[in-house]
Simulated scan of single mutants.
Amino acid sequence: MELVRIYESLCDITRLRLIHLLAQGPLCVCHFQDVLGEPQVKISKHLAYLRARGLVEVEREGQWMVYHLPEKPSAELTANLRCLQDCARENPQFQKDLARLKRTDLSCGPVQHAPGKTSTKTRRCAC
């Protein structure tokens, strides 16, 4: 059943883009808005879908919701995330998303530490 839930969740391009961005580290909804150019309601709807199926987790920081991939993903999810990352390397849309993410002000999102390490502790902003 786990694998079916994962595949059902990954059959939408917006959800794939969200998960791909979360592979870079925790993000606030406002960051997804900036990167994807989509309205908050659409992003929140897809994040709620992914959360209900255990593909993303969320922590409240004041009025902000910071999303991240599961701390201990299942073997099935790990394998599918690896596959997504491989496919995303060659997809222009995913590459554009990463470029936009690099230009996005993440000041309300996770504090970046050493490369590849993130914390879900956030700084405050007006997003």
Rank of each mutant, 00 (worst) to 15 (best):
T122R: 14
I13A: 10
G54Y: 12
R89A: 13
G37W: 02
V56I: 11
Q33S: 09
V4K: 07
L22R: 08
P39K: 09
T122D: 14
R82G: 13
D34C: 08
L36D: 00
V66K: 00
G54N: 03
K96R: 07
A88Y: 07
V35F: 01
A52V: 10
V66R: 01
N80Y: 03
R124N: 12
R60Y: 15
A126I: 13
K102A: 05
R53N: 15
R17A: 06
A99F: 02
P92M: 03
H68E: 02
C108D: 13
S9V: 06
L98F: 10
T120C: 05
R82L: 15
A48C: 09
H31Y: 07
V41G: 11
C125M: 09
L84A: 12
C30T: 11
G25A: 12
E71I: 13
G25M: 06
A48K: 10
K102L: 08
G116K: 09
L98H: 07
S74M: 13
G109D: 08
Q93V: 14
T104N: 06
E57K: 03
L36K: 00
Q33I: 14
D97Q: 02
V41F: 13
D86Q: 12
H46N: 11
K42P: 04
F32R: 01
P92R: 11
A114T: 12
V4G: 00
R124K: 15
L10M: 12
C11H: 08
C125Q: 12
Y49F: 13
S74T: 15
W64C: 09
Q112V: 14
K102G: 05
A79I: 01
W64A: 09
T118N: 08
P115Q: 08
R60T: 09
S9D: 03
M65L: 10
L55F: 09
R89I: 14
A23C: 15
S44H: 04
E90S: 08
D12C: 11
L27S: 05
G54P: 12
C30L: 13
S74E: 02
K102Y: 07
Q40I: 07
C11S: 14
E38Y: 06
N80K: 09
T104A: 11
Q33A: 05
G54F: 10
P110Q: 15
K45M: 14
V41L: 14
S9E: 04
N80R: 06
L50K: 08
V56R: 00
N91D: 15
I43S: 01
T78F: 08
V35K: 00
A88I: 15
V41I: 15
P39Y: 09
L36Y: 04
R53G: 04
E2W: 11
P70V: 11
R60A: 15
K72C: 02
E57N: 09
